[in-house]
Amino acid sequence: MIMRKKHIKKIMIFIGILILFMVLNNTNFFSGKSEHQPLLLAHRGMAQTFDISKVSNDTCTAEMIYKPEHSYLENTIPSMEAAFKEGANMVELDIKPTKDGQFAVFHDWTLDCRTDVEGTTMDYSMDELKKVDIGYGYTYDNGKTFPFRGKGIGLMPSLDEVLSYFPEKSFLIHIKSDDAKEGEQLAKILSKLPEDRLRLLTVYGGDKPIETLNEKLPSIRVMSKGTMKSCLIPYILTGWTGYVPGTCENTELHIPEKIALFFWGWSGKFIERMEKSNARIVIVAGDGGFSEGFDSKSDLNRLPANYQGWIWTNRIDVIAPAFQNKHTE
């Protein structure tokens, strides 16, 4: 009986030491105040915004924008230029294949919602898409007025145009489909770029195109649901030790704020560990659905103290000045 009690005591001591190790190895309590400011990822550049809570898979968002506060349209060179001037460290853009083998920078599955033509980008050449009015369908008052109609002609750029116009800027390129052929097509385009340019680019999208792209061009940073799961599920199981799975290397991880606390060492130690594996951490708002971002000054209050990762925002014009003002206080 005495031996049994001693044995139980040893087990309890071991468990206590193990728990203490797990806590100390993953706490941010002893981390000093960082001078490093979070980095900002502008979703689609400077864009017209809308109530994300009312969005579903087939929603035409151009028909539900708020009353415009600026003249920029998403996924255009002027909107990207404005975002960078505001203080964006990176801009996210969407690409869709064209009939003549290029990539148009455009978000929707079809052209019907926000343009003056129908069909998909695959039905047109890039030259033909240059004649399309991408501001045609925008309205904030249920169709009473269309403030951007006639102002979006010629504004749909190709991916080549964007990369040429911003040779030293960082972009997150979104392949909108799950077609492996698009990953192969993009690999051919990006493989022509020098390594120092590729380091400024990240690509995300469906599992199939990302897997194909990564096979053809392993040096580029990528993200898909598959790469996220292969990194984060093993980390949840073993991350308490400080171990980062090899599957996290050279990836981007979008972490919804609602589940962020489930990751060992969140946020400081988690980000530090992942950055050592060249994994970029981007926090997105809510559960991450429909591109929710940190879009108001009050949203920033939900960030962890001394957060040092990237922030996803749909309102770079609001968020960047908020950080600039904070930095000068």
Rank of each mutant, 00 (worst) to 15 (best):
D123C: 04
D123M: 01
D123H: 02
Y124V: 05
M126A: 15
M126T: 12
D127R: 09
D127P: 00
E128V: 02
L129Y: 10
K131D: 10
V132R: 02
D133L: 09
I134Y: 02
Y136G: 00
T139W: 06
Y140G: 01
Y140T: 03
D141H: 08
D141P: 09
N142S: 13
T145V: 14
P147L: 05
F148G: 02
F148T: 04
R149C: 08
R149G: 05
K151P: 05
G152P: 07
I153F: 08
G154K: 11
G154R: 11
P157E: 06
S158C: 08
L159Y: 00
E161S: 10
L163P: 03
Y165V: 10
Y165F: 12
F166Q: 03
F166G: 09
F166W: 06
P167F: 02
K169G: 07
K169H: 15
S170L: 00
S170G: 02
L172K: 06
H174Q: 14
K176D: 09
D178T: 01
D178Y: 07
D179L: 03
A180W: 01
G183D: 03
E184M: 08
E184R: 10
E184A: 14
E184L: 13
L186F: 03
I189M: 14
I189H: 11
I189E: 15
S191P: 02
K192P: 06
P194W: 02
E195V: 13
D196F: 11
R197K: 15
L200M: 14
L200V: 01
L201N: 04
V203Q: 09
V203I: 12
Y204Q: 12
Y204H: 15
G205D: 03
G205L: 07
D207P: 02
D207Y: 12
K208V: 00
P209G: 01
P209M: 10
P209A: 07
I210K: 09
E211C: 00
E211R: 12
T212F: 00
T212G: 00
T212N: 09
N214W: 09
N214K: 15
E215M: 08
K216P: 03
L217P: 10
P218F: 12
P218I: 11
P218Y: 09
I220Q: 12
I220D: 07
I220Y: 08
V222L: 10
M223T: 05
S224N: 11
T227G: 03
M228V: 07
K229G: 11
K229S: 13
S230N: 14
L232C: 04
L232H: 02
I233R: 07
I233L: 15
I233E: 12
